[in-house]
Amino acid sequence: MRKPRISLLRASWLVLRKDWMIEWRTRARLTALIFFSLSTLLLFSFAMGPDIEALRRHAPGYLWLALLFASVLSLGESFRVESENQALTGLVVTPVEPRAIFLGKVFGNASLLFGLSLVLLPVAVALYDIDLSRAPLTLLLVLFLGSVGISAPGIVYSAISANARARDVMLPLLLFPVLVPLLLAAVSATRFTLVPDAQDQLPGWLKLLTAFDLIYLSVGFLLFPKVAEED
């Protein structure tokens, strides 16, 4: 063709950067999201009462549930921005490869969740008395893999539910069942970065997390063009 083409990777990067720019320009919404997750953490500790042993034991679960609830909001927001002024259609006919939109938006949303988890960690230390010093780097890896794992199927579901009626209910209804194994793996992996890992279970859960990410990244990569195009 007579016009220059940009590579898939470059296009994905541009989509990702665009999402970051929008995130930055709407940081009031971002702040609201952070406080929403913080109050979720707080509510869990109120619901459990002052039993610090129980809180410490269940801290990984609370952390991931808080992230999961926040992800529903951030995923919904991610496509509200795209459906306003039909911007997604605009991207597709620009043209931007739908697969690049998928990759860009997955990692845009994942980086948001990852950042959010970094904010939640110190609060979890304060509320649940957990010890982060045991394997901090592995913990970061778990948080990152988990964030990608929520976002990969989440972006596809968010794209299809953005145009359905009752979209606020549709997204979690579709997304949560699929995330059951991810939640299980992420919570278990997080736990073994916080407490002694006597049976050496951590590597197994990390592998499961990675496998989940890779599977859903590839399936989403293949499916997204069918979802984004009004074929």
């Binding site: 199927p153 596809v156 579901y157 299809i160 359905a164 579709l174 069942p177 699929v178 059951v180 194994p181 299980l184 793996a185 278990s188 197994g204 499961l208 496998a211 989940f212 599977i215 859903y216 399936v219 989403g220 499916l223 069918k226 979802v227 074929d231």
Partner: peptide, 25 residues
Amino acid sequence: AAWSAAAAILGYVSLPIVWFSVRWW
């Protein structure tokens, strides 16, 4: 038709992963 097909595939893919993770747990 197209969107629900995508939703079905994403859901079905989780079947073996759920099975595996719960058995392992």
